[in-house]
Amino acid sequence: MSDKQESIKQAAIALFAKRGFDGTTVPLVAEEASVGAGTIYRYFENKEVLLNVIMQGEMLRLEQSFKENFPYDRSIREQFSHLFIGLIRFSQENFESIMLINSHTTSRHLSDQTKCDYTSLLTFLSTIVEAGREQEVIDRDLPIEAIVAITFGAVVELAKCFNGGELTLTEDLLETLDEKLWRAIST
Rank of each mutant, 00 (worst) to 15 (best):
K115D: 03
A33F: 08
A37N: 14
S81Y: 08
S65D: 06
A11C: 07
G132P: 01
E175M: 10
S120H: 11
I8A: 06
G165S: 11
I54A: 02
V49K: 14
Q64S: 14
K47Q: 09
G165P: 05
L174W: 09
A37D: 08
N52G: 02
V129E: 00
K18P: 04
A184F: 06
L50D: 00
S2Q: 14
L177Q: 10
M1I: 09
R19W: 10
T114R: 06
E145G: 10
M55H: 01
S111A: 12
I8S: 01
A131V: 10
N163F: 09
S97V: 03
C116I: 11
C116L: 15
E45N: 14
G20M: 10
H82N: 02
H109R: 14
T123G: 14
Q135W: 08
K67N: 10
H104E: 04
A146L: 15
F95T: 11
P27I: 01
L169I: 10
G132I: 04
D117N: 04
L87W: 05
D178V: 11
T176H: 14
I54C: 02
Q135N: 14
V137T: 11
R74N: 07
I101Y: 00
I40T: 02
I13R: 08
I147A: 02
I88C: 07
V148H: 05
Y118I: 00
I128K: 02
F80T: 02
E32W: 12
K4H: 13
I13F: 05
L110G: 00
T25D: 04
Q56D: 15
V29Q: 00
G23T: 08
R108S: 15
Q79R: 12
N163R: 12
W182Q: 05
P27C: 07
T127L: 11
E63K: 10
V35W: 04
P27G: 07
T24H: 05
I101G: 00
D172T: 11
E166L: 13
L28I: 13
D139T: 12
K160V: 07
P71I: 03
A14E: 12
T170S: 13
E134M: 14
L28Q: 15
T106V: 12
H104I: 07
E145S: 15
C116M: 15
Y118C: 00
